[in-house]
Design a protein around this nucleic acid. Structure first.
Lengths: 106, 106
DNA sequence: TTATTATTTCCATAGTTGTTTAACTATGGA
DNA sequence: TCCATAGTTAAACAACTATGGAAATAATAA
């Protein structure tokens, strides 16, 4: 994973509404949740929620699928795995014995 | 760890100079590195670097100690651990068998 | 087709962030 | 004490970000 991509992913999560919606989707699992339902749960207008989904989608942290009139969003764990791996690289000055570095998020 | 604190930590890391300096300090280990040395390594002015250190310090992601004329910065892994734990909470819809959730960063 | 519902896009506004420059504080050597 | 070096702070400015109302698009039901 490249630095630029990691900055984008961190930046996407560094906003309270996006962080809350991402965590909601992590807990929802692969089936995800409809856009409007998430907006309502988080007390945010549809326009604002859509703006935030666009940013999260762009990084790959979430994905969407159309189902009837609804758009379901769900978390994709691969980007989070990559992000954590990037942050923990060379942890503790290359002394792996002192470390318990996670290799996988989910 | 609270949502607000996590947003602050993510926000602190969501900037290329800060992300690079944090990773440098992660690799340096507890002894850390002098402010000026980091600024030079990353090709950033002392003033800009100081501004970024202030933001990272405020979140607790890094710490400083004075040593003669030098200020040494070092990574504090606890905040990162808390951040990762917060992000992975309730991972995969409460189905821990499908998960490999990291409990510790370092 | 027309109406209805779900979501997105466009726009203006308000607020935040990163950088530079110049001035400041602190430490230690001559 | 004076000087050089290391680092911080403050002000200014340009660039970016978040918000919600209105209009546009998309999917479906009547």
């Amino acid at each position: 994973m490249e630095s630029k991509q990691v900055v984008e992913a961190l930046s996407a999560l560094a906003q309270s509404t996006r962080l809350a919606s991402y965590r909601l989707l992590v807990a929802c699992g692969p089936e995800g949740m409809a856009a409007g339902q998430i907006a309502e749960k988080l007390n945010v207008s549809a326009a604002t929620m859509s703006f935030h989904f666009k940013i999260l989608s762009h990084t790959g942290l979430i994905e969407s699928r159309q189902e009837g009139r609804f758009v379901y969003y769900s978390a994709n764990f691969q980007v989070m795995n990559g992000m954590v791996a990037y942050l923990t690289e060379n942890c503790c000055g290359g002394n792996p014995a002192a470390c318990n570095v996670p290799s996988n998020f989910c």
